[in-house]
Amino acid sequence: MPQPQPIWAFCAAEIAAFPEGYYRAAKVRPEYSTKRELREFCSGLSEILVYQAGRRFAPVGGRLEIDTKSELESASIDIREALEAGKCPDFDAFWAHLERTFSGDAGQRVAFTQAAKSVINGFGLTPDSEIKRTASAIVLEARAGSELTFRSSLRRVGYYSQQSMANLIAGLAAFASHAGFASLGAQLARGGLVDHEFTTREKVSFPDLDLVLFNDKWQFKFSHRVGEALSLFISEYGAEHLASRSRY
């Protein structure tokens, strides 16, 4: 059986047969192209490891956001430097670092701190914020600009408000699941609220939460037990971030 020939042999044969040709069927990939593809592959692999860590170590009903660049630096792993030295980046060491940093209680605390930050930002809370209380609810409001849907009188959250509202809902879902309000947490985590098409002042009801949708804001009416638990959650996991917003 004939042995396979290296690509440069085919290139040489093609040039010998057609020396005047510009376009070639056989090409040798430039060294810089190979290095770039290898670097992109390794970068992609690091992103996959971070994604898997976020899924594996996130608390029930919540999410865990991990910054790949920051964690590579913390693990003292430089992909470009390793490849230029002719070595493979130590991804086993990187995964071990992710496990040490985010598994167990450590990762859950990071996730709940992120959730509290999303809630604080979503409601625009500051240390001096006054919380409205009624006989039946604790009321918080979030800015949510909306726009008319195409060929309809219904409205939906505007593009410029979608991410902040998605972060707020995800933060509330994590809080509810952590605080023992499993049904509320599950329904909020299911998603779809940000894409919901609504009429002005429409009310959407969840266990222990009524949500009233206005053109430029969403009004959250929490039952007293959920509202008090949310206050404790923010005090435990969001106190530092809340204090940093004193200038707002």
Results as ranks from 00 to 15, higher is better:
Glu240Ser: 11
Ala26Thr: 11
Leu172Ile: 07
Thr34Met: 04
Ala93Ile: 07
Arg24Phe: 01
Ser70Cys: 08
Gly61Gln: 10
Arg29Leu: 14
Phe220Ala: 01
Phe91Val: 04
Glu81Tyr: 10
Ala239Asn: 13
Asp208Val: 00
Glu20Trp: 14
Ile120Tyr: 00
Ser118Tyr: 09
Tyr51Trp: 14
Phe214Ala: 04
Arg143Val: 06
Ala85Gly: 11
Met1Gln: 13
Pro59Gln: 05
Ala116Gly: 08
Gly21Ile: 14
Ala173Tyr: 02
Asn167Tyr: 01
Asp92Trp: 04
Ile169Arg: 01
Ala173His: 04
Leu193Arg: 02
Glu240Lys: 08
Gln5Pro: 03
Tyr23Asn: 12
Ser235Lys: 15
Ala186Pro: 07
Ala170Lys: 14
Ser103Pro: 08
Ser164Met: 14
Ile79Ala: 11
Leu242Asn: 11
Arg143Thr: 11
Ser177Asn: 15
Tyr22Leu: 14
Ser33Trp: 10
Phe214Leu: 05
Ala16Val: 07
Ala173Cys: 12
Ser33His: 12
Phe57Cys: 10
Gln219Lys: 11
Ala135Phe: 03
Leu213Gln: 00
Pro89Gly: 00
Tyr22Met: 15
Gln219Pro: 01
Glu240Asp: 13
Ala116Gln: 10
Lys221Gln: 10
Arg63Leu: 07
Pro127Asp: 05
Ile131Asn: 07
Leu188Pro: 01
Gly158His: 11
Ala75Val: 05
Glu14Arg: 06
Arg190Tyr: 13
Thr126Asp: 13
Leu148Met: 15
Thr200Cys: 07
Arg155Asn: 11
Ser244Val: 14
Trp95Gly: 04
Val110Tyr: 09
Gln219Met: 13
Ser161Trp: 15
Phe10Val: 06
Arg29His: 02
Ala25Asn: 06
Ile7His: 07
Ser183Arg: 14
Ala135Gln: 08
Val119Asn: 03
Phe181Ile: 08
Arg39Cys: 10
Ile169Met: 04
Thr134Leu: 09
Leu242Phe: 13
His196Leu: 00
Gly62Pro: 01
Ser205Cys: 02
Leu72Val: 05
Gly192Arg: 02
Gly124Tyr: 03
Ala243Ile: 08
Pro19His: 12
Glu141Asp: 04
Arg151Thr: 12
Lys69Arg: 09
Leu168Asp: 10
Ser223Gln: 04
Gly21Arg: 15
Phe10Glu: 03
Arg29Asp: 06
Phe220Val: 01
Tyr248Asp: 12
Ile15Phe: 15
Lys35Asp: 06
Ser231Thr: 01
Ile66Ala: 14
Phe94Asp: 06
Leu188Met: 00
Gly124Arg: 06
Arg56Cys: 02
Val28Pro: 04
Arg245Ala: 09
Glu240Val: 09
Ala26Met: 14
Thr126Met: 08
Gln219Tyr: 02
Arg39Ser: 12
Leu172Arg: 08
Leu45Thr: 05
Ala25Gly: 01
Gly158Glu: 15
Ser74Thr: 07
Pro127Ser: 04
Ser235Ala: 15
Trp95Phe: 09
Gly104Tyr: 08
Val194Lys: 05
Glu73Ser: 13
Gln162Thr: 13
Glu73Pro: 07
Ser177Val: 06
Ala25Phe: 02
Glu65Gly: 07
Phe10His: 15
Tyr32Thr: 02
Glu40Cys: 00
Thr34Gln: 02
Phe206Leu: 07
Glu228Lys: 02
Trp8Tyr: 15
Tyr159Ala: 15
Val60Trp: 04
Val28Thr: 13
His224Met: 00
Leu49Pro: 07
Gln52Ser: 11
Gly145Glu: 10
Arg190Asn: 12
Thr126Gly: 13
